[in-house]
Design a protein around this nucleic acid. Sequence first.
DNA 1: GTCTATACCATGATAGAC
DNA 2: GTCTATCATGGTATAGAC
Lengths: 200, 200
Amino acid sequence: MANDRRVDEPAGSAAASSRDRLIAAAQQLYWEQGVSSTTPRQVMQVSGVGQGSLYHHFPAKHELAQAAIAVTVADALATAEGELTSGSPARERLIQYLTRPRDALAGCRVGRLTYEQYVIDDDALNEPVRQYFRRLIALVQDVFAELPGMDEGGSRRRAYAAVALIQGGYVLSRALDEPAALDSAVSGFVDVLNGDAGLP
Amino acid sequence: MANDRRVDEPAGSAAASSRDRLIAAAQQLYWEQGVSSTTPRQVMQVSGVGQGSLYHHFPAKHELAQAAIAVTVADALATAEGELTSGSPARERLIQYLTRPRDALAGCRVGRLTYEQYVIDDDALNEPVRQYFRRLIALVQDVFAELPGMDEGGSRRRAYAAVALIQGGYVLSRALDEPAALDSAVSGFVDVLNGDAGLP
DNA sequence: GTCTATACCATGATAGAC
DNA sequence: GTCTATCATGGTATAGAC
């Protein structure tokens, strides 16, 4: 990555380079079936790039995974940042982040990596995932902190809860094969956030 | 399972049968490193059972996985049921379930299966996972429903939120390599449940 | 940069003796 | 029920020509 002086091409470029097509194919396959289940052969087929080219651009599967995960994390963070730092009132930004339409059955592209042994065993693959959640939680905490009468501990705990809720909603939707499970979980959280609490 | 007439041995039996040791080893390995990463060889080594015995008791890896996952799900459900149907007031039962000490870095033995391609692709493996979450959510919903002024939709949504929160807490703890992340998420949820809401 | 052919190894499973 | 030996497959990577 660091020694790659190639000029960046636009993501939607009509004729993406072999390297970009390999990364895009890997991203898609990782999302659909996980990293360890994705073989170099499959990446070649989906990308339409030959075997020689794959191993020319990436010395091994590991380096391809590193590149693909880095792009996935950067994209996901950019989306969240756009929602959470827009000009809207804090309350609206929070609701917008929580209720954004998500492909619940597909799962979180980043969160699922935490249960992938192939990723866990490899610090270079693990680090982007850690950074993603660190920054996402910080973004959410900053929004909670804008609300009146919120101390630092309170905003911090609520940020962990909000991000965990989304991740767990994905898990429930997948387990139950029920896209609406994530929505139900979010609704329940928003209910209690709205002060319509539950404990006497 | 249905055609197995062998007399059940106590779980903590001094001399467990080969079959039971195989299942126990598989459970442990599935928890530590996932199902697809766990090879029959590893199960043999951990259980101390030879290869011939493994394939005598289980025709293939698939049947071993089925048996091990069934036991894991049954155990996890029994634990949750004990907490959620005890004699304590509803509020206490809920808090007890949410704040039970958990090995956050290890992840949820059941929840992690939702991101395992090996499990997803196999209905026989998938069904116990679905049942686990269906029943767990129902148990939690029943407790919420005991609280005053709670309609059915409200208890349902809160149950989804509570279960999702735990699952997502595991994901965060693993992603951040930070056992306390799950605790923070739970605390944030309990904060808002306590009516100490957040949105103006 | 890209291609085809090939080597290597772990996995998942079978065979057949005891 | 348990053992050892063996096999077939497919994933990962390398070699070397173009």
